[in-house]
């Protein structure tokens, strides 16, 4: 059924820390590796080693040059994947019922056996979360690794999405954003986590933690705020330096 379930108490999703993400693409590679062999795989490539490789990926990492409103220049690495929206238009536009949102935890999935590859769900997603599989011709998207998180055969610490486990800077966090007491919800509250383009009304579950203020100027790092000669205070210097200063000032 493509009708959306009523919003539940449990909303599984990701929290991505844009402050610590270094843009290494480990999450994207781990995602590709796991989901190629996972329950919703394969995640095919066409002409993978040829001149124009084409393939479905569920996670893409952009890198930007950003000038903040205060005028500071920074880099921003931005992993982009399905946000498991509450108002998931990709689900309601689906003509076959292949796209669905799980009532129990809000994860948005595609049934690969009933998808007709009409691409309307990809058109309906403002975040570019869905890509067509060039070989199977059906739509692929982030599953939050349901085949890991639902798998009782795995030890508890392995029941996490592959991207979260792979992240070398621990910029990715997985948990229940519907529970205000969960670690991810506390992190969002503490760091002012944001939804992407909330004005579109899709109500994404995933949150992004904005970059902290950068220590860009000498003063921000604990060094004297100004490193030129005016920073020398003769009264505070040792007698030897005071003498050298007097000598050199003649």
């Amino acid at each position: 059924m493509t009708a959306l379930p009523p919003p539940g108490n449990k909303r599984l999703g990701l929290v991505i820390d844009l402050d610590t993400c270094v843009g290494c693409h480990a999450c994207a590679v781990a995602c590709k590796q796991w989901n190629d062999a996972g329950a919703y795989g394969p995640l095919n490539d066409q002409d993978g080693y040829g001149a124009e490789p084409d393939g479905a990926w569920l996670n893409r990492v952009h890198s930007y040059d950003v000038v903040t409103p205060e005028g500071d220049a920074t880099t921003l690495h931005f992993p982009r994947s399905c946000l498991h929206c509450e108002n998931a238009a990709c689900v309601t536009v689906c003509p076959t019922g292949a796209s669905f949102k799980r009532a129990e935890d809000g994860i948005v999935l595609v049934n690969p056996d009933t998808c007709i590859g009409c691409k309307l769900c990809a058109w309906a997603c403002p975040y570019g979360a869905r890509e067509i599989d060039p070989v199977e011709k059906t739509m692929k998207k982030c599953t939050l690794c349901v085949d890991r998180i639902d798998n009782p055969a795995l030890p508890a610490h392995d029941r996490q999405p592959a991207c979260v486990q792979a992240c070398p800077t621990r910029a990715r966090h997985f948990g229940d954003l519907g529970d205000p007491q969960s670690a991810v919800s506390k992190l969002v509250a503490e760091r002012g986590g944001q939804a992407l383009a909330p004005e579109l009304g899709y109500k994404p579950t995933n949150r992004y933690l904005p970059p902290r203020k950068r220590r860009q100027r000498a003063g921000d790092t604990g060094a004297p705020a100004r490193l030129d000669d005016h920073g020398f205070d003769a009264q505070k210097a040792s007698p030897l330096l005071r003498w050298a200063d007097r000598l050199l000032s003649r």
């Binding site: 393939g55 479905a56 990926w57 890198s63 930007y64 950003v66 931005f78 058109w123 944001q194």
Partner: peptide, 28 residues
């Protein structure tokens, strides 16, 4: 807004997420 940055941030891509065209670029 698309990147969850404060309003008024100036944004320029400096590294694309992939070297070849993908489904999104071909379709949209």
């Amino acid at each position: 807004s698309a990147l969850a940055l404060p309003a008024g941030s100036r944004v320029m891509p400096f590294e694309a997420p992939h070297t070849e065209a993908n489904f999104l670029l071909k379709e949209m």
